[in-house]
Design a protein around this nucleic acid. Structure first.
Lengths: 225, 225
DNA sequence: CTAAATTTTAAGCCAATTTTAAGGAAGACC
DNA sequence: GGTCTTCCTTAAAATTGGCTTAAAATTTAG
């Protein structure tokens, strides 16, 4: 799950970034409109949500949003705005934004809106279950046969990625891009280590692993409903 | 499905190669313009897509593209470029490229564009079906009468090639050229071994094989719709 | 600032896959 | 039938890619 923040005020940007990273998102920050648009267009497929400041040096959030929609992409966009006139808001939504939030806002509120959009986007549950293991995204918890299991951030993100793609093969290159946010680095052996960690923590000894290896391609979690 | 990458930066080239191989493509890499052109012209019929770096030592991507088009070949060409001025892009497309992608890009985006071009070119369905056997390219799964069957990478690629050419005879030389990469010397007999493996895994005992031998030519899967 | 936890890098090992090789079976042609 | 070619089958050799572990680097917490 990857989010782009376009916001020139460092304190706000950092505040949001830290908060989102704690929630397990991969976060990119652009501190002006041009960089923001660049990042957005270059990685449009990868962002699950984009947060746009309304007022930005160089190029406004509205402009960015228009450009994104010109590329006809459905990525959810949320405006962060100090303005609060109804006109502006309507205008923002007309340019193709999905939601807006008025500054100052609580992080909790922002997160709630992000979750709403993400849920709409992929109408997925927040709870995943597979052979005795249960993951609750919102609570950020994992249980195995009812007992809590501690996962580190990376382990959690990786497992989340697998579950969101239950039944499909997850290719190594895609995993590196989506979970690690690394492009162009062809050494993806980190994955091995994390697969090992996940298996140690989640598998039932004696039984076949929850995560099956597809040699030369990647890994897969079976859809067992 | 075979792809040529002409890119001098090894990290980028390897990254793309690995990613594409995970997707089941046969991949050739040239690390300079001259080699790239050589490979392209020598095997023009075999490549389904060619990826060209814009800036290359010796001979630029544009030059290569021009040469390819002089040979009047319709193979789709995608430019990988660090430049981003509109002029350059227009120029690139005018030389006969079909698309371009700005570095840095995500692998997913590149793959999406490759798929678009291939779809234009041929029947790019994601699911194939023939006498009880079903192949899903995206999920990377095969089922026989509903039950999952495990194929190795090469088996998968070979079977995919047959299905994409359902009803047509697949000549041995052609198979080698499409499914195996350029480093292969022309001993065809690997195919026998893989045909054997596929038949063992996919045929229904007692019934005629899914893959029929066309003696002196190659093999064929009947189009039974 | 230090200590602990997490993440990444590195390396040797092992197993699955891929390729080579070789003998036998089946068509094709005389 | 004999001979030649092409394909099938099997087994062994070579290679590749994933597994595991430990240590190094980085980040986070106290």
């Amino acid at each position: 799950m990857r989010i782009l923040i376009v916001e020139d005020e460092p304190s706000i940007a950092n505040f949001i970034r830290d908060g989102l990273e704690e929630e397990g998102f991969a976060v990119d920050v652009a501190d002006n409109g041009k960089k923001g648009l660049q990042l957005a267009l270059d990685n449009l497929e990868d962002y699950d949500v984009i947060l746009l400041d309304w007022m930005l040096p160089g190029m406004s959030g509205i402009d960015i949003c228009r450009h994104i929609r010109l590329e006809n992409k459905a990525v959810p966009v949320i405006f962060l705005t100090a303005k609060d006139t109804v006109d502006d808001v309507v205008f923002g939504l007309e340019t193709g934004a999905n939601d807006y939030i008025r500054k100052p806002f609580s992080f909790e509120e922002l997160l709630a809106r992000i979750r709403v959009l993400m849920r709409k986007k992929e109408n997925e549950s927040v709870v995943f279950k597979v052979s005795g293991v249960e993951m609750n995204i919102e609570k950020h918890t994992i249980t195995k046969n009812g007992n809590p299991v501690e996962l580190t951030q990376k382990e959690f993100s990786l497992f989340e990625y697998f579950l969101r793609n239950k039944g499909k093969v997850c290719r190594r290159t895609r995993i590196i891009e989506k979970v690690w946010d690394i492009h162009f680095d062809y050494d993806n052996s980190v994955i091995d280590v994390y697969i090992n960690a996940l298996r140690k923590k989640l598998d039932n000894p004696g039984k076949p692993s929850i995560i099956t290896t597809v040699r030369g391609v990647g890994y897969k979690i079976e859809d067992d409903e």
